[in-house]
């Protein structure tokens, strides 16, 4: 066996893992490439020519930037509301013993276990039967987004809280911090990474949601709905610009976090 062959054999699983990662990234490469595409026809799925024009004028296609801004506004609002309500619930679940705790757990878990099409259609059924059928739009989307983000927030914050040693809070109380000070000086700073993760998750879930939104949006157009609509007609390359930009932002987040972690580890040793 050659040296390379032996390496492959020994690290077979690792190699396989990298291949799967490639599969995950293949479409991203296409999206990045297509963001520089100068399409010949309106319904183009091929790379026809290189241009930076799309990056310079991302708002050129009619309604695209409006849709992005609608999605951003809904995403931010839904994140704030869902993170606040979900964090409160997570505290109740981890830090308190009360009757109906396991039933509540199930109740919080269920929305995550329901297909989006069911969540969306049942909300629509409610809106229609309660006479809001004609007023679907920004607020009904927001309501839906908060609803499906909530469970994810609870689960994420709960995990962080459950992993926190409650002796730290006892130590704070032992050191003359009252309940309020204990919360703000010890509990909150320690749970904050969990809350931040929950907020990021909420935002990306909200920004990316299509199935539930599409059913409850009325005439309002979010970014995913814009993409969906243009997929039926023409696909402006600017969509790929937005997709690439979002990916790069996320990547920068991730790399910065990893670098920070590495640096902290280095100063430790």
């Amino acid at each position: 066996m050659t040296r390379f062959g032996r390496f492959i054999a020994r690290n077979f699983v690792l190699v396989l893992g990298f291949v799967v990662l490639l599969y995950l990234f293949a479409p991203i490469v296409v999206v990045m490439l297509m963001s520089f595409n100068a399409p010949k026809s309106r319904l183009s799925y091929t790379f026809d020519g290189f241009t930076v024009d799309n990056w310079l004028h991302p708002c050129r296609p009619f309604g695209l930037c409006d849709a992005v801004s609608t999605s951003l506004r809904i995403g931010l609002l839904a994140t704030v509301v869902a993170t606040a309500l979900g964090t409160l619930m997570a505290f109740a679940m981890v830090r308190h013993r009360f009757r109906g705790r396991s039933a509540t757990n199930l109740f919080i878990f269920l929305p995550m276990a329901s297909p989006e099409i069911v969540l969306g259609s049942s909300l629509l059924a409610l809106f229609v039967s309660s006479g809001f059928g004609g007023r679907l739009g920004f607020w009904t989307i927001l309501i839906a987004h908060v609803m499906f983000c909530l469970s994810f927030v609870v689960v994420t914050v709960k995990a962080r809280l459950a992993g926190m040693d409650s002796r730290l809070e006892q130590a704070a109380m032992d050191l003359y911090a009252n309940e309020w000070q204990t919360f703000w000086r010890v509990t909150f700073p320690l749970v904050f990474p969990g809350i931040l993760a929950a907020a990021l998750l909420s935002f990306s879930l909200s920004f990316d949601d299509f199935i539930i939104t599409n059913l409850n949006a009325g005439t309002t157009v979010t970014f995913p709905m814009y993409v969906w609509g243009s997929a039926q007609r023409d696909i402006p390359p600017q969509i790929n610009v937005i997709g690439t930009a979002m990916f790069l932002l996320a990547l920068i987040f991730v790399l910065a976090g990893e670098l920070g972690r590495r640096r902290r580890e280095r100063t430790r040793s």
């Binding site: 730290l168 006892q170 130590a171 032992d174 911090a177």
Partner: peptide
């Protein structure tokens, strides 16, 4: 606990 003139060295230090 915070009203008592008593302090604790916790197991695993906390």
């Amino acid at each position: 606990p915070y009203k008592r003139p008593v302090n604790t060295v916790f197991q695993n230090y906390a």
